[in-house]
Design a binder for these strands. Structure first.
Lengths: 152, 152
DNA sequence: TTGCAAAACATAGAGAATCTATCTAATGTA
DNA sequence: TACATTAGATAGATTCTCTATGTTTTGCAA
């Protein structure tokens, strides 16, 4: 029947379940190997996000991160307590603040990225150039999907 | 300079940091969209794992899942309480038990997979066949990396 | 065969990451 | 001016995970 894995060449679809499972397993492995780092995973995500977005409001960060506003409030408070983020009043709206990466936060992000890469990169070492290229292309595709304003 | 993204054709390497970040963002999105399901993420991972491995000991499950033994003990106890997993004494070792998927667990796994797929698949709907094929290939590569006995 | 280190699992305690529900304060508009 | 809306903050509860430690079997060795 050739239904081995909808490889139908012409209208191939993503095997969503396999995809999600791989993501979950990868995330498990990544957070485990990064457990000894001094920046917890959610804080990493936040620092990288603020680094990309520049000064942004809590609500915007929550939306971009696909998390709830209370969650983002808490994460920002933690990062602020570490001195990684700064908060300035939004000149246009007294209810809001603008969250930005501090110099210390920038250094911490760079250091954590390096440490995290050092911890995980060996896993990829055995991959040939073809497979590595495939993974890089997959990352680009996913990033595009995640960054686009979800159309629903 | 063309160092845009180590695309050097010949000795391309995985951009580990971008890769890990995408995984973290995907995991965030996936767990959020699956939040209303009745099988929490870690339990999903466990049921899928047991479904693959067949009857296995706690320690083997922990190793395959890249998590600690106490964590696996807890997760197994929860799944057991739901009637999703069964525990039988290991005939070869009175200290150990063999964990297996119950019929109810199998049904729950299938249902949860379907629900999860329905929740996430729309994200992939807009992808063309080329991109879908790339993602499927990436999943295969990653699964191979994750399943191989890590050589360290 | 007894004794003890090792192995397999369970328990305790703590911290991170989330969510929903709700509260406060500022905006904007009728 | 009054009231609905919006931006964040707070409270309380889960889930998920870890390290440290305890308990029971095993298995080997004297």
């Amino acid at each position: 029947m050739g239904n081995e894995k909808q490889v139908d060449a012409g209208r191939e679809q993503v095997d969503t379940d396999a995809f999600l499972r791989s993501v979950a397993r990868l995330h498990r492995l990544a957070t485990r190997n990064a457990a000894n780092l001094d920046v917890p995973p959610a804080q990493m995500r936040l620092l990288a996000l603020v680094s990309d977005l520049g000064p942004a409001r809590i609500g915007d960060l929550a939306e971009a991160d696909h998390s709830s506003q209370p969650t983002m409030t808490t994460q920002v408070q933690r990062a602020e307590a570490h001195g990684w983020l700064t908060r300035t009043p939004d000149p246009d709206d007294a209810r809001a603040s603008l969250i930005a990466l501090s110099p210390k936060g920038g250094r911490q992000l760079a250091a954590a990225r390096a440490a995290r890469t050092a911890a995980i990169a060996p896993l990829f070492a055995e991959l040939g150039p073809r497979d590595a290229a495939t993974l890089n292309r997959a990352v680009a595709i996913v990033d595009r999907l995640l960054t686009n304003p979800s159309p629903d």
